[in-house]
Design a protein around this nucleic acid. Sequence first.
DNA 1: TTGTAGGCGTTATCAT
DNA 2: ATGATAACGCCTACAA
Lengths: 327, 327
Amino acid sequence: MTKVTMADVAKFAGVSKSTVSQYINHRYEYMGEGTRRKIKEAIEQLGYQPNYVAKSLKQKRTFIIGIIVADIVHRFSTEVSRSIEDFCYENEMQAIICNADNNGKKEKKYIDMLRAKQVDGLIIFPTGQNEDLYKKMVEEGYPVVFMDRDIPHLKAPFVLANNQQATYEAISYFIQKGHQRLAIATQPLTISSRKERIEGYKQALNDHHIEPRADYMISTDISELHQNLNRLFQLDMPPTAILAGNDLVFLEILSFLQEKKLKIPEDVSLIVFDNIPFAHLTNPPMTIIAQPAFEMGAKAADLLLKQINKEAILPERIYFTCELICR
Amino acid sequence: MTKVTMADVAKFAGVSKSTVSQYINHRYEYMGEGTRRKIKEAIEQLGYQPNYVAKSLKQKRTFIIGIIVADIVHRFSTEVSRSIEDFCYENEMQAIICNADNNGKKEKKYIDMLRAKQVDGLIIFPTGQNEDLYKKMVEEGYPVVFMDRDIPHLKAPFVLANNQQATYEAISYFIQKGHQRLAIATQPLTISSRKERIEGYKQALNDHHIEPRADYMISTDISELHQNLNRLFQLDMPPTAILAGNDLVFLEILSFLQEKKLKIPEDVSLIVFDNIPFAHLTNPPMTIIAQPAFEMGAKAADLLLKQINKEAILPERIYFTCELICR
DNA sequence: TTGTAGGCGTTATCAT
DNA sequence: ATGATAACGCCTACAA
């Protein structure tokens, strides 16, 4: 175990703890060449490693941030997290990732836990179920950045995708390709991003004078998606195109189509809202709406670190443009 | 900010700090009903949250473990990490994941960093480039578990896959299907798991009286894989089957085959050593060698926590059986 | 049953 | 240029 402490180094080098501390923190300004060498040697001899816990206690900074994702299973979440981690690495920080599993209780527990561990700030994909807590943190001035889902009326930095606009464009593209019977499937409309995607869908239909049909709009838990799809494709006029609201929905649809021996794109066309790892390698290649996960993660991390270092007053809501990749 | 401390609670409740400490740590044994209620109230009123940094300093435990993966890009690494996190959650611990990026320097930096932060233990996918450091940790009795790659002669707990055996079986299966010209492609043979896969391949050929050919065995960086595949398929007798040593190699091969308009399985058969997220949904479905990532992660976490809690003397090397999923 | 005092390993302030 | 001393917030004997 690392039991050699600064006091040991000090004794070994024949100087005081303060001087060793100076050395550790690269404050060589007034340090004599001799002491410097002695300390260096002592550290090497003893194999001394500073204790960050003690340092943190004193400085009230842990150099750790927390990431709380609503659902780690999404490709998008993992890409964003990775990008945040990269950004942290470059800034000598570390990240703890926690998976709230779409569960408000778990989210609260993690927020409390991470704050108890004194992490310097939090990036949250909010479940939306702890509005009071979000608000309290913001009011206390605790550094937070929210991602992916908007919480209306919350005055805090948000990093968001332009869901509505992107969906609008994708559906319009489908319509231009000649589709008239378009369906959309998402998970339950409990968070802003899903609602916005539905909005974009409706608006596109409207603008192209297609009447939206309630039975073409599915919003359900993944576990019940299969039977909903069944119902959808048993309609007299089943859709010729369907937009999958995210990657999980996509996988479920794919498996459904395969089971029913429906071919893409002959029997039904598919667009996915989310990056799919090898969309370019599937057969046929998949048309997707790609969110700039990497940029969004980097931005969130940047905003958080700026906040932690009190470097800037933060903007409130930043929207990123998604890209429709037609294949 | 959490500025309210135990002393504040004590003062507010009209008791001493120690009593509050007792309360926080659920030592109600000798505590009067009255004090208990007063403290409870004080905590609620003040919104007190214990400071884990201070607690950690005193108790020399942070309730955090570190995971250092050699390359986070692999599906296997992420599945294992997820599984470790789940296990930690159930045991009131947290995990910090670091990506060494196959870089020994980075690996060392992370190990030092995490230990400086006093994490309670480490799970490492070793790059193999810091043998002395691994050894030192083990000798110091610092809790460590190694994953995925063996480091010969290191007396420490390892959680490993039976790479050789699994590859042997996969190749044998191909041979039974009538293949005679079998190739294998892996990343460079710098770590044990890749070497073992090659060994299993050779052994299977041998046992079936097929002469191994050097030009059918590719071990190269991903960046140079494409040109190696080019060479492979320009041979007079190109292989009819190829085993991809991991998921990254697989993606590269897939993209190569697509470019050359080679069909699976008509022109060439493919087996992948690694779980591919939607292998069952690709067309045609992919035959894979699946490592039990979830179980391996849970086991590693279990061993580490046991070690941290000094609950057991640890076994040295545990091998997990991979499953050949034929599709 | 509760309080007092000291220490965990640093850093910060102020002397010297 | 370097050192003494007091925090940081909590836990733990031991005393009362």
